[in-house]
Design a protein around this nucleic acid. Structure first.
Lengths: 107, 107
DNA sequence: GTCTACATGTAGGCTCTCTATATGTAGCCA
DNA sequence: TGGCTACATATAGAGAGCCTACATGTAGAC
């Protein structure tokens, strides 16, 4: 997968994956891999900064937890994030529609 | 449309639009607008450099023409570009599939 | 005692898209 | 004559985000 292809869609992916349950970074990466059918393998250097960016933006909130002696920062979707996610879903639909029409126009 | 969303998909769009007929830059921008149902409005500062990049990569070839006193650089898809476009179409399908599954998983 | 899985984080680079600007022709209209 | 719009191409510089590479540490298996 061309790295640039994900540009501007990462936010939607991350918000979507924590929609129904709070997750920590490492688990988010695994969830992306699983839910995408193995297509997505997002490096930690992408995910961790992105999560912090989304928290700064108010779309996620985080808290530390210790599980089995390991520290985790668990991210949770905020109300603002929920609204953002809805917008991203709509944007995704029109985006794919627009590109799809250019790529495969039905004459 | 979030500009970043187009990242990595611009090549496919440009190649696709000149697939069946050679076009010059200005006409390519109009074609993108038209074929996307008005969703795409790509600025000249994006298209012209991108076309040159694709020509350098061997996916397009160009030649100058003068029509109605105005100079045009007309771009044509090369064989290499045709193969590239096919690959981009496949990549687009798996890309949307992967993102779509993450964004809207059927439980 | 070493290796792997788990877990988080930063620095720096790369590349593409965008904004802003520059240049020039043709045609219309007042 | 002058000004405006459409047509047509091009470049410089900024901005942003995703990636590679590196750093750090715990837990458990062998």
């Amino acid at each position: 997968m061309n790295p640039d292809a994900l540009r501007g869609h990462m936010d939607a992916l991350l918000l979507s994956v924590v929609e129904h349950e709070p997750l920590h970074g490492y688990a988010i990466i695994e969830a992306l891999h699983l839910r995408s059918g193995g297509a997505l393998d997002v490096p930690t250097g992408t995910v961790y900064p992105a999560l912090r960016r989304l928290e700064r933006a108010g779309f996620l909130s985080s808290e530390w937890a210790t599980v089995g002696g390991r520290k985790r920062r668990t991210y949770r979707l905020t109300d603002s994030g929920r609204a953002e996610l809805a917008g991203e879903r709509t944007a995704w639909t029109s985006f794919t529609s627009a590109i799809g029409r250019v790529l495969n126009p039905q004459t």
